[in-house]
């Protein structure tokens, strides 16, 4: 199984920015021990949700033709804990995009409040650069469908994104 740390995208503008939603629920088992009686979502997993948001934004921009991996968390700061019942919104922005890598900035918010901010750096690896194949095409496409990327996604001219024919 894969760990999915975002529930869907609400905004997706190719190569520019995206907003994804993560609902924090006490139904998630990992919260039961973290901590008993005072559940909170670990910020490390919030970083993973931020990375999934920004990583898909970047991978789409390079047409999924390289393996996009989170290479480093260049900076991260959190202002308060996310708890069951909160809806986190991850606002990702592409700061720089090159064939070999990309720099992104992601903010997580709960309502109007900024919960966390991070600068995430992705490496874009070719096959043979040490990372095994991350997804089978049909599996990836199912995830993108689940994320509603082709329902709400737009290119920079405002046109709907074409769903790839994999």
């Amino acid at each position: 199984m894969r760990w999915f740390w975002i529930d869907r995208f609400d905004e997706f503008v190719r190569g520019r920015h995206a907003v994804a939603v993560k609902n924090v629920s006490l139904a998630e088992e990992h919260l039961h021990d973290h901590f008993p009686g005072a559940a909170l979502m670990p910020n490390s997993l919030i970083v993973e949700g931020m990375a999934q948001t920004a990583g898909l934004l970047v991978a789409d921009a390079i047409e999924y033709n390289r393996r996009v991996v989170l290479a480093k968390v260049a900076a991260a700061e959190f202002h308060f804990d996310a708890v069951p019942g909160d809806t986190l919104r991850f606002h990702a922005e592409v700061l720089d995009l090159k064939p070999a890598g990309s720099l992104t900035k992601v903010k997580s918010t709960v309502g109007e409040r900024v919960q966390g901010e991070a600068e995430l750096f992705f490496a874009h690896l070719e096959p043979g650069e040490g990372v095994p194949k991350l997804f089978e095409p049909d599996e990836l496409l199912r995830w993108l469908d689940q994320m509603h990327i082709y329902d709400i996604g737009r290119d920079q001219a405002g046109q709907p994104l074409a769903r790839p024919d994999w």
Partner: peptide, 9 residues
């Protein structure tokens, strides 16, 4: 090594 890519950016 990954930092060098970041530094390049």
């Amino acid at each position: 090594s990954i930092d060098f890519l970041d530094i390049v950016f």
